[in-house]
């Protein structure tokens, strides 16, 4: 059920070992490294991590373009910087 499977990522991070707040801090630092309109792809834990990352990205004006559930515990997300 991955949407936008062809969307190419400009940067990739794996934060599946991180918990709040470092999961979001690392996401933010990664977003700082790319330009508006570029895509960050990340891997994070299900549950609180994916919930908080999704909520905070929306609050800050980024668009989640692609979501793939890799397993019960892991999400793979593509984020369009400043896409909202």
């Amino acid at each position: 059920m991955e949407n936008e499977p062809d969307l190419k990522a400009d940067l990739f991070i794996d934060i599946s070992d991180e918990v709040c707040p470092m999961s979001f801090v690392k996401t933010k630092l990664a977003l700082d490294k790319i330009e508006s309109g570029q895509v960050l792809e990340l891997i994070c834990q299900a549950g609180d991590s994916v919930k908080n990352i999704s909520i905070q990205l929306k609050d800050e004006g980024h668009l989640i373009k692609g979501v793939k559930r890799e397993s019960e515990d892991i999400f793979r997300i593509k984020i369009l910087k400043d896409g909202l």
């Binding site: 059920m1 949407n3 299900a46 549950g47 994916v50 919930k51 999704s54 979501v67 559930r69 999400f75």
Partner: peptide, 23 residues
Amino acid sequence: CTGCTICSSACTEDAIESDKKTG
């Protein structure tokens, strides 16, 4: 809805389940 299943993962109350086929 794109069936991404983030909502069921975000819900800590077991109020949302994801359909196994469509998400």
